[in-house]
Amino acid sequence: MGGDILIVAEHRDGKLLSTAAEAVRRARELAVKSGGKVIVAVLGSGVDAQAQSLASFGVEVLQVESPHLKDFTPDGYAQALTAIVAAVSPRLVLLGHTATGFDLAPRLATELGRPLVQGCVDVDLDGAKLLLSRKILNDKVLMQLELGGDAPAILTFRPAAWKPAEPAAGGSVKRIEATIDPAKIRRRFLAIEAPQVQDIDIAAADIVVSAGRGIQKKENLKLIEEFAKMLGGVVGASRPLTDSDWLPKTRQVGQSGKSVRPKLYVACGISGAMQHVAGMKDSAFIIAINTDPTAPIFEVAHVGVVGDVLQVLPAVMKELKSGA
């Protein structure tokens, strides 16, 4: 096993996902410690543009081509990647903690008989040991794991765990024609479906007031709507509310919903799970109201209020109306 760090880059609709550049930044630092280099694999059919774009980060790119890799399938990708991992013999394989990562990383781990740790917020090397930081229990606790020996590992890291890499010189692209046996592709890709949008676009609003489970009852949405209206904003929501159909899916802020970056974001009774935070952390100013002082939303908020949103909001509105 060498000291190389292998990144599997994801792309969709011809564009790279941001996780590729994020992994490159951290992998460069790790490669210095492990005495190897950063290699990025991009798989697909006709992915020259993605490969060139990755090479602009100054890394070695493996452009893995096959007509059977046109659409993502775990069986197709695993066939190509197990061959690459065997050839490169990297210290680490890094994939995004994404829907694709969930399909692919466990598959690689079982096929290659390698350890798997998903959802890392940081990865470090301590001699022969790997140190893996993870947030657990609704992101309220940080756990650091130690993976012993020098076992090569498969890891997924959370999107936005690291800042994206800056462009750098010295990149290269090596094109490989992968041998894929289509008979071994069991799961078949059928289609990509985008939802029909028939609602306001919360991503276009300057002020977003979002409600979470802390509002307790659907009737209490009135309070959130009233407050949003006072500020000239729109109402967003965390996932449990849209899952319960209290609000349409179009209002969901988060990784699987909309990403917003308004001038003001007010999180009302939202604990701040990664899924939600991924969609609002770049807001210019964030106010969070939550009963739990250990809630992770207070890690991304600029101003935090520990309290019951059902009491705090009416009092704030009263203050605003009184004009004091």
């Binding site: 350890p115 947030k135 992101d139 756990m143 650091q144 012993g148 009092a315």
Partner: peptide, 30 residues
């Protein structure tokens, strides 16, 4: 067949911690 163990468990580092407003509801609201 490999060793995976917990090195430490801690509260998340408070690097981006919000400025907290505390007190009675009326004062907080103000």
């Amino acid at each position: 067949g490999y060793s995976l163990r917990v090195r430490s468990v801690s509260p998340p580092e408070a690097k981006g911690r919000a400025e907290m407003i505390t007190g009675k509801v009326e004062d907080v609201a103000k």
